[in-house]
Amino acid sequence: MSVFLLLIQSAFAERFMPYQGTAIAAEIDYLYSFLLIVSLIAFVILIGGMLYFALKYRRKADNEPTPRITHNTALEFLWSGIPFIIFMIAFAWGLIIHKKMVDFPDKAFEVHVTGYRWAWDFQYKSGKKITNELYVPAGEPVKLIMTSKDVIHSFFIPAFRVKQDVVPGRYTALWFEAKTPGVYQVFCTEYCGTNHSRMLAKLHVLPKKKFEKWLSDNPYKGLSLAQRGEKILKGSCAACHGLSNARKIGPGFQGLWGKERVLEDGTTVVADAEYIRNSILYPQKQIVKSYNQVKMNSYQGQLSEDELTYIIEYFKNEKGN
């Protein structure tokens, strides 16, 4: 039996399903393969039968007589009984796996997840908080405790075959134990408005040692707020903005604070905290004159409130120098 399943497994499941990132994912794929095989057989019997009869008994003359066959109790029992048995097998098998999915291991590594339009915040017991990048250790059960700040979202990791709605006003949870280190895709699967399809996150599974190092590592440790801001600008924005006043894809940043900006529509505005914040979150709202060819993406949801503060502090501080 298990050899048979293994065969099916290699023949089908891995073709269509994403990589099997957990042991439970592999179990789900077994069940899936079983369903696929059985349904292919059923489909061939039904549709094959239909086509066979259609060709064999196709009309040769008008007014051909046909036999008066009203029913056949034995046959009818057969074709209600066999599907019923198969459905019950699938149901029970599903239940067994489902039980494992909802039985949370006692000692799972916990991460708090907050969904909001349109990003995911991950918070660790150590106080570390990060947006749209979830880091977890390999080979250890991880439990995500989730809630939403606004509307319903849903947290989906295809490689682990787990999905759970994230509901405002209550906590939901899911768990998994990642087999292999690597980077996996996370989707939001409950429609949540404008940028639903961009509400993506990456799941980084690290070997235990590396993970611990990552967890204790604080990228902002010992830095002032302005220095933190500089770090972000050099990291995320360098492709388009330099810290000098040289023009790249976007304007150079030197001396921006308090400067009068001339916009595409001819109006002017003073670069204050509000303006900088808007430029980052809603870049299309106020476009700097002569910069309308390439559009800056909105960083809504990608930068946290804290990080926005760091950036603003950088600009303030830079002007002061």
Binding site: G94, H98, S154, F156, R161, T189
Partner: peptide
């Protein structure tokens, strides 16, 4: 397929 809970968890939405 979708009535089998663990399969549905993957396919839902």
């Amino acid at each position: 397929y979708l009535a089998v809970i663990p399969i549905d968890v993957h396919f839902h939405d």
